[in-house]
Nucleic acid binder design. Structure first.
Lengths: 96, 96
DNA sequence: CATCCATATTGACAAGTATCAATTCTCGCA
DNA sequence: TGCGAGAATTGATACTTGTCAATATGGATG
Protein backbone atom coordinates (compact mmCIF):
# COMPACT_ATOMS: atom_id res chain seq x y z
CA UNK A 1 0.00 0.00 0.00
CA UNK A 2 1.07 3.57 -0.49
CA UNK A 3 2.44 5.74 2.21
CA UNK A 4 -0.31 6.37 4.72
CA UNK A 5 -1.72 9.42 6.35
CA UNK A 6 -0.57 9.11 10.00
CA UNK A 7 -4.05 9.93 11.24
CA UNK A 8 -5.47 7.08 9.19
CA UNK A 9 -2.70 4.85 10.51
CA UNK A 10 -3.57 5.72 14.10
CA UNK A 11 -7.28 5.16 13.56
CA UNK A 12 -6.59 1.89 11.79
CA UNK A 13 -4.45 0.73 14.67
CA UNK A 14 -7.33 1.34 17.07
CA UNK A 15 -9.97 -0.12 14.77
CA UNK A 16 -9.59 -3.69 15.92
CA UNK A 17 -11.32 -5.22 18.94
CA UNK A 18 -8.19 -6.91 20.26
CA UNK A 19 -6.01 -3.84 19.87
CA UNK A 20 -8.63 -1.48 21.29
CA UNK A 21 -8.88 -3.78 24.27
CA UNK A 22 -5.11 -3.67 24.71
CA UNK A 23 -5.08 0.10 24.57
CA UNK A 24 -7.92 0.40 27.06
CA UNK A 25 -5.95 -1.74 29.47
CA UNK A 26 -2.86 0.35 28.94
CA UNK A 27 -4.74 3.57 29.64
CA UNK A 28 -5.50 2.32 33.13
CA UNK A 29 -2.04 1.15 34.03
CA UNK A 30 1.55 2.26 33.88
CA UNK A 31 2.79 -0.59 31.78
CA UNK A 32 1.78 -4.12 31.01
CA UNK A 33 4.02 -7.07 30.34
CA UNK A 34 3.48 -8.55 26.91
CA UNK A 35 2.83 -11.88 28.55
CA UNK A 36 -0.16 -10.47 30.45
CA UNK A 37 -2.18 -9.47 27.42
CA UNK A 38 -3.00 -13.10 26.85
CA UNK A 39 -5.40 -12.99 29.78
CA UNK A 40 -7.95 -10.78 28.11
CA UNK A 41 -8.43 -12.22 24.68
CA UNK A 42 -8.33 -15.73 23.38
CA UNK A 43 -5.62 -15.20 20.83
CA UNK A 44 -2.29 -16.88 20.44
CA UNK A 45 1.07 -15.44 21.44
CA UNK A 46 2.12 -14.62 17.86
CA UNK A 47 -1.15 -12.80 17.32
CA UNK A 48 -0.60 -10.73 20.44
CA UNK A 49 2.88 -9.90 19.27
CA UNK A 50 1.53 -8.93 15.86
CA UNK A 51 -1.06 -6.56 17.32
CA UNK A 52 1.50 -4.98 19.62
CA UNK A 53 3.71 -4.39 16.61
CA UNK A 54 0.88 -2.65 14.76
CA UNK A 55 0.26 -0.42 17.77
CA UNK A 56 3.98 0.31 18.08
CA UNK A 57 4.34 1.25 14.43
CA UNK A 58 1.31 3.50 14.60
CA UNK A 59 2.86 5.30 17.55
CA UNK A 60 0.18 4.25 19.98
CA UNK A 61 2.42 2.34 22.37
CA UNK A 62 6.07 2.09 23.27
CA UNK A 63 7.95 -0.90 24.61
CA UNK A 64 10.74 -1.26 27.09
CA UNK A 65 12.68 -4.23 28.29
CA UNK A 66 12.51 -4.95 32.00
CA UNK A 67 14.55 -7.96 32.90
CA UNK A 68 13.09 -10.96 31.22
CA UNK A 69 9.90 -9.29 30.07
CA UNK A 70 9.00 -6.56 27.64
CA UNK A 71 6.69 -3.98 29.09
CA UNK A 72 4.34 -1.95 26.95
CA UNK A 73 2.87 1.40 27.79
CA UNK A 74 0.95 4.16 26.03
CA UNK A 75 3.09 6.39 23.87
CA UNK A 76 3.65 9.71 25.64
CA UNK A 77 2.17 11.78 22.85
CA UNK A 78 -0.76 9.51 22.15
CA UNK A 79 -3.33 11.62 23.91
CA UNK A 80 -2.08 14.72 22.13
CA UNK A 81 -2.35 13.00 18.78
CA UNK A 82 -5.82 11.76 19.58
CA UNK A 83 -6.87 15.24 20.60
CA UNK A 84 -5.46 16.60 17.37
CA UNK A 85 -7.57 14.29 15.28
CA UNK A 86 -10.58 15.03 17.45
CA UNK A 87 -10.09 18.75 17.03
CA UNK A 88 -10.25 18.36 13.28
CA UNK A 89 -13.29 16.12 13.46
CA UNK A 90 -15.55 17.19 16.22
CA UNK A 91 -14.34 20.50 17.54
CA UNK A 92 -13.19 18.95 20.76
CA UNK A 93 -10.78 20.62 23.09
CA UNK A 94 -8.42 18.91 25.43
CA UNK A 95 -8.49 19.98 29.01
CA UNK A 96 -4.86 19.77 29.99
CA UNK B 1 -19.66 -10.98 10.26
CA UNK B 2 -19.93 -11.13 14.00
CA UNK B 3 -21.56 -8.45 15.99
CA UNK B 4 -19.15 -5.60 16.38
CA UNK B 5 -18.27 -3.31 19.18
CA UNK B 6 -19.79 0.01 18.09
CA UNK B 7 -16.62 1.84 19.06
CA UNK B 8 -14.60 -0.41 16.80
CA UNK B 9 -17.17 0.10 14.07
CA UNK B 10 -16.86 3.87 14.38
CA UNK B 11 -13.08 3.79 14.35
CA UNK B 12 -13.08 1.42 11.39
CA UNK B 13 -15.36 3.74 9.50
CA UNK B 14 -12.90 6.60 10.00
CA UNK B 15 -9.83 4.49 9.28
CA UNK B 16 -9.85 4.96 5.55
CA UNK B 17 -8.29 7.90 3.72
CA UNK B 18 -11.28 8.50 1.48
CA UNK B 19 -13.81 8.31 4.29
CA UNK B 20 -11.73 10.43 6.64
CA UNK B 21 -11.51 13.01 3.90
CA UNK B 22 -15.29 12.93 3.49
CA UNK B 23 -15.83 13.40 7.20
CA UNK B 24 -13.37 16.28 7.38
CA UNK B 25 -15.29 18.02 4.63
CA UNK B 26 -18.56 17.40 6.43
CA UNK B 27 -17.24 18.86 9.66
CA UNK B 28 -16.73 22.16 7.91
CA UNK B 29 -20.08 22.38 6.21
CA UNK B 30 -23.74 21.90 6.91
CA UNK B 31 -24.33 19.23 4.33
CA UNK B 32 -22.77 18.04 1.13
CA UNK B 33 -24.49 16.61 -1.89
CA UNK B 34 -23.35 13.08 -2.66
CA UNK B 35 -22.46 14.26 -6.13
CA UNK B 36 -19.94 16.75 -4.75
CA UNK B 37 -17.71 14.25 -3.00
CA UNK B 38 -16.34 13.24 -6.35
CA UNK B 39 -14.34 16.45 -6.46
CA UNK B 40 -11.94 15.52 -3.69
CA UNK B 41 -10.85 12.01 -4.48
CA UNK B 42 -10.33 10.20 -7.69
CA UNK B 43 -12.78 7.42 -7.04
CA UNK B 44 -15.80 6.33 -9.00
CA UNK B 45 -19.42 7.02 -8.14
CA UNK B 46 -20.12 3.49 -6.84
CA UNK B 47 -17.09 3.72 -4.60
CA UNK B 48 -18.27 7.01 -3.17
CA UNK B 49 -21.68 5.51 -2.57
CA UNK B 50 -20.07 2.53 -0.86
CA UNK B 51 -18.03 4.69 1.50
CA UNK B 52 -21.02 6.83 2.36
CA UNK B 53 -22.93 3.68 3.20
CA UNK B 54 -20.16 2.55 5.55
CA UNK B 55 -20.21 5.94 7.26
CA UNK B 56 -24.00 5.82 7.50
CA UNK B 57 -24.07 2.37 9.03
CA UNK B 58 -21.41 3.31 11.55
CA UNK B 59 -23.54 6.28 12.60
CA UNK B 60 -21.03 8.86 11.47
CA UNK B 61 -23.25 10.57 8.93
CA UNK B 62 -26.91 10.90 8.10
CA UNK B 63 -28.49 11.46 4.71
CA UNK B 64 -31.49 13.41 3.58
CA UNK B 65 -33.09 13.85 0.21
CA UNK B 66 -33.29 17.41 -1.05
CA UNK B 67 -34.98 17.55 -4.39
CA UNK B 68 -32.92 15.65 -6.88
CA UNK B 69 -29.90 15.19 -4.65
CA UNK B 70 -29.12 13.37 -1.48
CA UNK B 71 -27.38 15.52 1.06
CA UNK B 72 -25.08 14.09 3.69
CA UNK B 73 -24.20 15.65 6.99
CA UNK B 74 -22.49 14.65 10.22
CA UNK B 75 -24.65 12.59 12.53
CA UNK B 76 -25.88 14.78 15.40
CA UNK B 77 -24.37 12.59 18.09
CA UNK B 78 -21.10 11.96 16.33
CA UNK B 79 -19.06 14.37 18.38
CA UNK B 80 -20.51 12.97 21.58
CA UNK B 81 -19.62 9.44 20.53
CA UNK B 82 -16.13 10.52 19.59
CA UNK B 83 -15.71 12.20 22.94
CA UNK B 84 -16.90 9.06 24.67
CA UNK B 85 -14.24 6.96 23.03
CA UNK B 86 -11.64 9.61 23.74
CA UNK B 87 -12.60 9.71 27.39
CA UNK B 88 -11.95 6.01 27.68
CA UNK B 89 -8.68 6.26 25.81
CA UNK B 90 -6.88 9.40 26.66
CA UNK B 91 -8.62 10.98 29.58
CA UNK B 92 -9.93 13.74 27.39
CA UNK B 93 -12.77 15.94 28.42
CA UNK B 94 -15.13 17.69 26.10
CA UNK B 95 -15.51 21.38 26.64
CA UNK B 96 -19.19 21.73 25.89
C1' DC C 1 29.18 -21.66 27.29
C1' DA C 2 24.62 -23.94 27.39
C1' DT C 3 20.02 -23.61 28.32
C1' DC C 4 15.65 -21.73 29.13
C1' DC C 5 12.08 -18.45 28.87
C1' DA C 6 9.69 -14.61 26.72
C1' DT C 7 9.07 -12.34 22.54
C1' DA C 8 9.39 -11.79 17.61
C1' DT C 9 9.35 -13.43 12.86
C1' DT C 10 7.96 -16.47 8.96
C1' DG C 11 4.80 -18.87 6.17
C1' DA C 12 0.32 -20.10 5.03
C1' DC C 13 -4.50 -19.50 4.78
C1' DA C 14 -9.18 -17.61 5.46
C1' DA C 15 -11.81 -13.64 5.70
C1' DG C 16 -12.57 -8.89 4.91
C1' DT C 17 -12.33 -4.69 2.04
C1' DA C 18 -11.68 -1.19 -1.63
C1' DT C 19 -12.43 -0.61 -6.20
C1' DC C 20 -14.63 -0.40 -10.77
C1' DA C 21 -17.92 -1.61 -14.71
C1' DA C 22 -22.43 -2.69 -15.48
C1' DT C 23 -26.91 -2.54 -13.97
C1' DT C 24 -30.83 -1.23 -11.27
C1' DC C 25 -33.45 1.76 -8.45
C1' DT C 26 -35.89 6.18 -7.37
C1' DC C 27 -37.37 10.45 -7.60
C1' DG C 28 -38.60 14.90 -9.94
C1' DC C 29 -40.52 16.75 -13.87
C1' DA C 30 -42.22 17.46 -18.53
C1' DT D 1 -47.21 8.22 -17.67
C1' DG D 2 -42.55 8.11 -19.38
C1' DC D 3 -37.96 10.08 -19.40
C1' DG D 4 -33.69 11.46 -17.41
C1' DA D 5 -30.42 12.36 -13.77
C1' DG D 6 -28.55 11.13 -9.35
C1' DA D 7 -27.71 7.42 -6.20
C1' DA D 8 -27.52 2.60 -4.85
C1' DT D 9 -26.71 -2.27 -5.77
C1' DT D 10 -24.48 -6.31 -7.99
C1' DG D 11 -20.69 -8.96 -9.49
C1' DA D 12 -15.93 -9.54 -10.09
C1' DT D 13 -11.18 -8.90 -8.73
C1' DA D 14 -7.00 -7.55 -6.38
C1' DC D 15 -5.27 -6.30 -2.13
C1' DT D 16 -5.09 -6.18 2.81
C1' DT D 17 -5.50 -8.18 7.30
C1' DG D 18 -6.22 -11.33 11.33
C1' DT D 19 -4.95 -15.67 12.76
C1' DC D 20 -2.23 -19.77 14.02
C1' DA D 21 1.63 -23.34 13.82
C1' DA D 22 6.30 -23.61 13.45
C1' DT D 23 10.56 -21.51 13.93
C1' DA D 24 13.93 -18.05 15.14
C1' DT D 25 15.93 -14.54 18.22
C1' DG D 26 17.78 -12.60 22.27
C1' DG D 27 18.71 -11.81 26.95
C1' DA D 28 19.17 -13.76 31.76
C1' DT D 29 21.14 -17.18 34.47
C1' DG D 30 23.13 -21.36 35.94
Amino acid sequence: MKRRDPDVALLSALADPVRLSFVRQLVESDGICACDFSECCTVSQPTISHHLKVLREAGVVVSERQGTNIVYSLAPDFSRRWAGIGASLAGLVQVA
